[in-house]
Write a protein that binds this DNA or RNA. Structure first.
Lengths: 347, 347
DNA sequence: CTGAAAGCGCTTACAG
DNA sequence: CTGAAAGCGCTTACAG
């Protein structure tokens, strides 16, 4: 099925070692004439170098591994896109291994090591607190992650989630809101805690309180967010502003509010995080904090490639997020006629 | 960084060939005692077999390639998920190579061949009509595709797009609609032509016409669909039923209708295709034809694995689609009080 | 400018 | 039950 270097060498009338050199582009090893002969022979018989053999002798496979959580997550898939692009641009292939819920991540790492990937890019927020991942990674395999990895030691390329929460709070505050609620991701996650702290702290600074009863935990899913929003609505529907931890959940939350006859933003404003492609097309178009997934994926891949080459890399890089104002937020109805204008003007 | 078979053999006091055999689970090659020693030695020194070396001698890398178009597409990412799962369950790693717009797909195929993947799963609807893909694939590499590949010869695992269009038409007809419009994907695509023909033909059978002026072509994107729907609305807003070629575009179309003050389904019904996770959470929850992406991906991977083993495989398998009725369709307002009830009853 | 040797880490017959 | 040989397809010094 595949022809070898020996075949092209035979056809060109040189030794296979010489053929290897010219095919690898080593300059000045042969005369232009033989060079041409070799190249032509390779092309004629359809020579495709064997990366396995090359990797074996070079002790590296020109491959990076991507260890991923959930390929279908719209945010995570953007990381993959950017990472593949970046790796490919530097001649690396990407080996993708998904870690299913409940599966030991050490198995995934082992699989990558068997294939002698040069390094691993970790895109697995759900494994943040799993000590097995960090243990499997540290030492044996150069790795960089776009989320926290338990136990440390793995360079992180991500965004400042605390700031994201602060930005959301800031926006809502500036509109004059005073009664807040939030639908968060799973409490165990760093992202969630950071976003939540950023949000809550900013409210506190402004002298506002976020009642614990108005903090509803969800699990990143549409269904979970829908249920969480319903709980909020039944607990205490007086809130006028809602911070949701990502756009997908915001879709579920929007649906819940609609079901309860609450209009957005008239009855309730919503800010979320991510800024997925569909955010501007929702009803209403969503105000959200933009998270630069593709840039992050690209940076992470670059850092990994540096690490693989043994170059020094930063232990963490944070890319900035920023607010994108659309139609899901406005001044609260009651306050917009009294307290707010002044407060607004004083900012 | 990695220890070799020789290292574990030395530690266990056997030859490395013997170690190889027991580590590969060959039964009855050694006594239980030495077997235990070898296994323990391997574990103690952290032996990780070298898949490169193994692949070199076995002439196959236990790897399948996934050639993909757009990783971030919510439909395509489901194919990846299922394919990875299926391949992994059979011990195969997945090498993913994205083909960027404008890039020669032959390069992607070549890259897979260099890495000696056992076969390729093609998930690249945008390359349907590109003759270079089929040419690069045919012959050298076992492959199966979830979309048509120009020139034939590649087993196809997909769904019946014609039937999908028919199902949509059938549903709209049964509700009593008589004025139809459609927002399609790019006309060049097979899926698009099949869905369109299925839709239009069913309408014709029912004695209805689909005016060419009410066929708006879009490009699968939110923005494109939004623009297409706007064109329709400006051309001839009298239609009461709209068939949209996928859910993502339906989000854009919904947004356009909303902008024009047309309510769904009161003023206009919408059916689309795919049944993505968010379909039930849109405003209104979307009636759509369910396409079994994950099952398709799984089947496709299975067929590929068979092909790799040299077993016989079907040249095409089609998985059925089915309608999921939600709130974006209803009887048209005018007709619901006159012609329709009778017609409805007669179906 | 070209060739021959050694070796990467394995597996698979083949001997004993 | 265990070992030694041959070879997979390359690259990288080293000679000439």
């Amino acid at each position: 099925m595949y022809v070898s270097l020996k075949d092209v060498a035979a056809r060109a009338g040189v030794s296979f070692q010489t053929a290897s050199k010219v095919l690898n582009g080593h300059p000045g090893v042969v005369s232009e004439r033989t060079r041409g002969r070799i190249l032509k022979a390779a092309k004629d018989i359809g020579y495709v170098p064997n990366a396995l053999a090359r990797g074996l002798v070079r002790q590296t496979s020109l491959t990076v591994g991507v260890l991923i959580d959930d390929v279908t997550d719209p945010a995570l898939s953007q990381f993959i896109l950017a990472a593949e692009r970046t790796a490919a641009a530097q001649g690396h292939a990407v080996l993708i291994v998904a870690v299913e819920p409940g599966m030991d991540p050490a198995l995934a790492v082992r699989k990558m090591r068997e294939h002698r990937v040069g390094g691993a890019l970790v895109i697995a927020p759900s494994l943040e607190e799993d000590p097995r991942l960090g243990m499997a990674l540290r030492g044996p395999l150069p790795a960089v992650s776009v989320n926290h990895v338990h136990g440390g030691g793995i360079p992180l390329v991500g965004s400042d989630h605390g700031a994201t929460g602060t930005i959301a709070a800031e926006h809502l505050l500036s509109l004059g809101h005073r009664r807040f609620a939030t639908v968060t991701g799973p409490r165990g996650r760093r992202v969630v805690r950071s976003r939540h702290h950023g949000f809550r702290n900013r409210l506190h600074e402004a002298g506002m309180r976020l009642s614990p009863r108005l903090v509803a935990e969800a699990d990143w899913t549409l269904t979970g967010a829908f249920a969480a929003a319903n709980r909020l609505l039944e607990t205490d529907p007086a809130f006028t502003a809602l911070f949701v931890h990502n756009d997908v959940m915001a879709v579920g939350v929007l649906h819940a509010l609609r079901s309860h006859g609450r209009r957005v933003p008239d009855d309730c404003s919503i800010v979320s995080c991510d800024d997925l492609e569909l955010a501007p097309f929702l009803a209403p178009p969503l105000t959200t904090v933009h998270v630069p997934f593709q840039e992050t994926g690209e940076q992470a891949a670059r850092v990994l490639l540096h690490l693989i080459r043994g170059e020094p890399v930063p232990s963490r890089v944070f890319l900035p997020t920023h607010l994108v104002v659309r139609d899901s937020t406005s001044a609260p109805r009651e306050t917009s006629r009294s307290a707010v204008p002044a407060e607004h003007g004083s900012l």
